[in-house]
């Protein structure tokens, strides 16, 4: 895994040395208001109570989504952290709040003009998913959650789908945000 988390900086005494770091926060997770005088982004964002987050404690797979934005995951911005922090578990610093919802995603869904689940989930840009194109064995993980893989929900789809390539519908994301095509005029 690549770059890693945030508040180890404080534990290592680096924050006091003036090292800066930032993280993208979900709305509603800002530093407490009303008298508390902490710096913006003083605390690592908390994690909503979702299955991928629960598994991320064990699997260190956070960046699969949070580097590329799969599933509308907020993007990680870990500037100026020492290399050691690139190796630690995300859950070491990011606290999971039981019962909390991913608010940014909910807000995005409310503004989304398309039906819920109108589009098939994207696949992360990881080596195992690169190979899925070749092996068509996605269900080995996704039928029972091996390695924390989200479970497939293909109710009401034609039976032919059972034998089709997953890649026919599930797009593999390779970029955080590509530039929109240039308008000619």
């Amino acid at each position: 895994m690549a770059r890693r988390t945030v508040a180890w900086a404080a534990l290592l005494g680096l924050a006091g040395a003036g090292l800066s770091f930032t993280a993208v926060q979900e709305p509603g997770h800002e530093a407490a208001a009303g008298g508390e005088e902490f710096a913006a982004n003083a605390f690592p964002p908390t994690l909503s109570d979702t299955e991928p987050h629960a598994d991320a404690w064990r699997e260190d797979g956070c960046l699969r989504c949070h580097e590329t934005g799969v599933g509308d995951a907020p993007l990680v911005v870990h500037r100026d952290l020492p290399p050691l922090l690139l190796e630690v578990k995300c859950r070491t610093c990011h606290v999971l709040i039981p019962g909390s919802r991913p608010r940014e995603r909910a807000a995005a869904a409310a503004a989304e003009p398309f039906a819920p689940n109108a589009f098939p989930p994207m696949m992360p840009a990881s080596a195992v998913h690169d190979r899925a194109w070749l092996r068509d064995d996605c269900l080995l993980c996704h039928e029972d959650g091996t390695h924390g893989a989200p479970l497939v929900r293909h109710q009401d789809l034609p039976s032919l789908y059972l034998e089709a390539k997953c890649r026919s519908c599930h797009v593999q994301v390779r970029a955080v945000a590509a530039a929109r095509p240039e308008a000619a005029e």
Binding site: E51, E143, L151, R153, Q155, D156, S159
Partner: peptide
């Protein structure tokens, strides 16, 4: 959350019946 492969197959079969 979700369905097992068996559920998946059952669901698909049901869908086929509905379609027919």
């Amino acid at each position: 959350m979700g369905a097992t492969r068996r559920d998946f197959i059952k669901g698909a079969a049901a869908a086929a019946v509905v379609a027919v």
